[in-house]
Design a protein around this nucleic acid. Structure first.
Lengths: 189, 189
DNA sequence: CTGTGTTACGTAACAGTGTTATGCAATACT
DNA sequence: AGTATTGCATAACACTGTTACGTAACACAG
């Protein structure tokens, strides 16, 4: 017997990148496995060998997204909580489809893909640290609850903006600014 | 010539209800037009006669959802802003899939259905009124921005909870309570 | 009551989807 | 060099939304 060929890492990255590009352009539901494989210069079975199927490929794209998002958050972490909030919105607006897949309703089963459990945690770790630093006297429960509040506020505004919810009489950017100011004030003292 | 048969309103409601039930149980992407038609005791072409296709049927289900949600909000409106917030979460938790379709990323093109423009506005009209009543001295812009902030906060927490986002160290219910208290405090005076 | 124009919708076909069984070429070790 | 082992192309499968066709049912005119 002989040690067989390993998976081709180059093809894996090519598939991942073309899939991510197509998904970002047309949305996850409008992208077919055949078109991804054809654009990558291979066949559908390669996806099954390398990932396991369309859902697994989407999941891999999603995990890549979480890594990119977490890196963006960690880079902004040193500049303070407000910078963290701005980086959050910036990344989301730059990757609208990906953000929707990561934190939107897709987890609820619209598209059969879900990130590996715990994939989102590194993304909010900087927020957790910032809140903890701003509230040195708070208990763990208070800090945790506050993280939920801040994350919910930031995600909610970004999510509504991305979903195209009607901003009748206000702009989402203005609401976002106001929310960041309110958060900063209530955490400052 | 003769005035022809009108569309069968009974069949329309049957299709709408079975579609809504199936979507609520299995998610929008997992439901096929054939299964809906079969469960309703008819054929797929009936859906095309009555609605125009699968996307149009989903849109109709969605519009029904907006009507139900708006009714729930308007009913809670008289009981104050905090009651409005609780009713918001209650409805969303009772209709998780529908809520995700209505306000989640589906508008961004994951599933090819979109509510009629302006469908969400009656839903937030009570919130708008409550904020305006709580801030009688505020300008229109300030009120509008505050509506965005509050809506974003409430939607964000509900959306993250529904998406199954990890609540590492807190519960979404507790964060929601804390957020409502914070909103009430900052609007109270 | 009969006839006719108009419509609702069942049947069946179509193009396209994700998935899978089969087979062949390429490889890494003996 | 030989051979076991794998990657992946080909082609079939079951399924999807959509649509052409045909039939049965109806509202009105005579």
């Amino acid at each position: 017997m002989a040690r067989p060929l390993l998976h081709d890492e180059t093809l894996r990255r090519t598939l991942l990148d073309t899939a991510a590009a197509k998904i970002a352009r047309d949305g996850a539901a409008a992208v077919s496995l055949r078109s991804i494989a054809a654009a990558a210069g291979t066949s559908t079975t390669a996806v099954y060998s390398l990932f396991g199927g369309k859902a697994a490929l989407l999941t891999a794209v999603l995990d890549d997204g979480f890594a990119s998002f977490a890196a963006s958050q960690q880079q902004a972490a040193s500049a303070g909580l407000e910078a963290l909030g701005r980086a959050y919105r910036t990344w989301a607006l730059e990757h609208p489809v990906l953000y929707g897949l990561m934190f939107g309703g897709s987890l609820a089963g619209q598209v059969p893909c879900q990130p590996t459990p715990g994939a989102a945690e590194p993304s909010i770790a900087p927020l957790f640290a910032a809140v903890a630093a701003a509230l040195p006297a708070a208990s763990d429960d208070e800090i945790a609850s506050m993280v939920g509040v801040v994350w919910g506020q930031v995600h909610g505004l970004v999510s509504l903006e991305l979903a195209g919810a009607p901003a009748a009489g206000w702009s989402w950017a203005a609401a976002y600014d106001a929310a960041l100011v309110r958060i900063g004030r209530s955490l400052g003292r």
